[in-house]
Each structure stands twice: as structure tokens, then as C-alpha cells.
Design a binder for these strands. Structure first.
Lengths: 138, 138
DNA sequence: TAAAAATACTCCATAGGTATTTTAT
DNA sequence: ATAAAATACCTATGGAGTATTTTTA
């Protein structure tokens, strides 16, 4: 069983017609028939009633359709989850700051920043000037 | 992206080693490398750090692993859902019965039956002897 | 230097195409 | 009679194999 077969199956189930589904999928009708046949063989059930004028889902087909759609959704989400990592900045930064800053301007800045970059975790290191400069050098 | 590639990916992620994963998958190591490479290309990210002594998941790899496993689980469930239909009896039956039976022995019998055959829906038609016999003939 | 992944190539299984026949309305 | 699926056969993409080289701990 492959995702390609699930895509094919869902399209046929949607249109109730191999010929039209094959068109939309940009493949030849016999190629589509073949793939559905392979899928039916692997599952051990008929997924469609062949009625001469199109097709209709069997009971097993109805059942499988739900699972097939869910699987495709999961696959798409898995893909998107890594794409998301590429395009949006992410990681962690440590902000060294004096106590005065931490108590005054910093909080509101961090709120704005966190909204703009939800993928970035911000840590605050509060200290005096000298230790902060040392830490920065390291 | 195909389910086969997800299976391969999950196995490599589990063993952190292409060679051992290829063995378990019963394919050659270069074939496995090729498939992972194709997958990485399609996703647009590296899934593994190649460290000379095995491999480790990248951040994107960690992210994708969760989605891949969920997708495979969904696919398996979709398969099982139709297999279930084959082996376990299912459908609906209508039981014609006299009022006396409905009030006495039938309820407890139905409880037992429903537990044994959860896939079968039972309907009761309560009536007198003659109409029930007529309905049965039809 | 040794274990492991990448490369280079070859081969073959199978996805997909074309032409035609069969089927059911 | 006709739209639609199945069948038969062919082609070609790409998955998988073998041999070898490259990499890095």
C-alpha cells in the first residue's frame, strides 16, 4: 500500500468514475484501474461496485475511505511540519540585561518579539555590566 | 513521498545507522541511502546528521519522525478497519417476536448476542403471530 | 584505520501508456 | 447504442543490487 494509491482511491471515491478521476489525476484510465485493483487485492476486498455507468463505494470502500483520508491528512501535516521549520525562524536566544532594564522596557519588548517569532525561546540573564560582558565574550 | 519511504525513515531513526536499518529492511544499504536522499530532497531539509559512525536525527528529522509514525499508524488502522469487516460478521437482522417474549426472555438474550457480535445491529418487530408469519414470508 | 555513508553503474520490477474488448444501462 | 471499466500488450521510470570510493571519529 502506498500513498499514491490512497490519493487515487480518494479521487475515484469522490467522482464515482474511473475515467474522470484518471483525467484529474493526469494518468490514463487503465493505469488507475490497475492501481485500484492492486489496492483491492492487498486489502482482500472490493472497494467499488462496478455498475457499468460509473462506480459506487462498497461497504468496505466507505470504511476505507475514512482511513485513507485521515492517512493523507497526517502525511500532509508531517510534510508541513518540517516546511514550517525552514521558513519561520526558530531556536533560542539569551538576552543579558541590567536589573533596571528587566524591570522597565524589556518586558513589553519581549511580548512583541514573542508574538512575531513564536518559534524562538527567549531567556533573560539578569546581572551587572561586568559579568554580562564576560559572558558575551565567551 | 510514499509510505515505503516513511517506513525506511523510521527504521533508520530507530537504529541511527543506515547499514543496520538496511539489513532489517532486507534491502541494500545504497538503496536505503537513495530513498532517504529522495525524501530529504522532497522535504527540502536534511533529516539526519551524517557523523561517520552512524547518523543522528536533525531537528527537522525529530519533527518529521512524529508525523511519519502517526501517518504509518493511520495507514495501518485504515487497513485493519477493512480486514475487520471481512472476518467479523456484520450487518443487520430483524427479530420478530410476540409481546410475551419481548418482555421476558428476549432482552437478556440480546445483551449476550450484542456483546458477541458488536458489528450486527438488531431490530425487534413486536406483533402477534399472524402478521409476523406474513412478514417472514415476504 | 576502520566502520559507515556516498557514488557510480547496472538491472529489473512495476507504474503508466496505447489500442481494443467487454459490460451494463 | 453508448459510456465506462477491463484486458492485453508495450514502454520507461525509478527502486534496488553490486562494486567501489569517500568520509570522520
Amino acid at each position: 500500500m502506498e500513498l499514491r494509491q490512497l490519493v487515487y482511491f480518494v479521487e475515484v471515491a469522490r467522482l464515482n468514475n474511473f475515467t474522470k478521476a484518471a483525467e484529474r489525476l493526469r494518468i490514463a484510465q487503465p493505469a488507475l484501474s490497475q492501481q485500484i485493483r492492486n489496492l483491492e487485492q492487498e486489502l482482500g476486498v472490493k472497494l467499488f461496485h462496478r455498475t457499468g455507468r460509473g462506480v459506487t463505494l462498497t461497504e468496505a470502500g466507505e470504511q476505507f475511505l475514512m482511513g485513507a483520508e485521515k492517512t493523507l491528512t497526517e502525511a500532509q501535516m508531517a510534510k508541513d511540519s518540517v516546511k514550517g521549520l525552514i521558513n519561520s525562524p526558530h531556536g533560542k536566544i539569551v538576552v543579558g540585561a541590567l536589573e533596571s532594564m528587566v524591570q522597565t522596557r524589556l518586558p513589553s519588548l519581549l511580548v512583541v518579539f514573542s508574538k512575531k517569532y513564536p518559534g524562538i525561546k527567549v531567556f533573560i540573564r539578569e546581572n551587572t555590566t561586568e559579568p554580562l560582558l564576560e559572558a558575551l565574550k565567551k
